[in-house]
Amino acid sequence: MAPPSLFRDPWAKREAWRKHPVFSNRAMFGSMFPGFGIAVAAFSAYVAWEKLFSTANAHDDHHGHH
C-alpha cells in the first residue's frame, strides 16, 4: 500500500478558495440583485394595503367622477 502523502494534491492549498462559501452559487445570485428581496416585500405590502383600502373606498368612486 502506498503512503498517503504520495496521492496528496500539491495544489490543494491554492485551489481551496474555489470551495469557499463566498463563491457558492447561492452567494453569487444573492448578491447579484442587492435589495431585491426588500423591494418585493415592500411592493407586496403596498399592493395588499391598496387592495384592502380600495375595496373599502370603492363605493365612493362610483359617483361619476370622470
Rank of each mutant, 00 (worst) to 15 (best):
A2Y: 05
A2Q: 10
A2L: 09
A2V: 06
P4Q: 08
P4N: 04
P4L: 03
S5E: 15
S5A: 15
S5H: 15
L6G: 01
L6E: 07
L6R: 06
F7A: 03
R8C: 03
D9R: 01
W11S: 07
W11G: 03
K13S: 11
R14C: 09
E15K: 09
E15R: 10
W17P: 02
R18I: 03
R18A: 09
R18H: 02
K19A: 04
K19H: 04
P21V: 07
P21E: 02
V22R: 05
N25T: 07
A27Y: 01
A27W: 01
F29W: 15
F29Q: 15
G30F: 01
G30R: 02
S31V: 01
S31C: 05
M32R: 10
M32G: 01
M32W: 06
M32L: 14
M32E: 05
F33N: 08
G35A: 10
G35P: 11
G35N: 08
G37R: 14
G37Q: 12
G37T: 08
A39N: 07
V40G: 04
V40F: 08
V40Y: 06
A41M: 15
A41K: 13
F43P: 00
F43T: 15
F43H: 12
S44K: 08
S44E: 10
S44H: 00
A45R: 00
A45I: 06
A45M: 06
Y46N: 11
Y46V: 13
V47Q: 14
V47K: 14
A48R: 08
A48G: 03
W49I: 11
W49E: 14
E50G: 03
L52I: 06
F53I: 09
F53M: 12
S54P: 00
S54V: 01
T55Q: 13
T55A: 08
A58S: 11
H59K: 09
H59S: 12
H59L: 06
H62E: 14
H63C: 06
H63W: 08
H63A: 10
G64H: 00
G64T: 04
G64W: 04
G64M: 02
G64S: 02
H65G: 07
H65D: 14
H65A: 13
H66E: 14
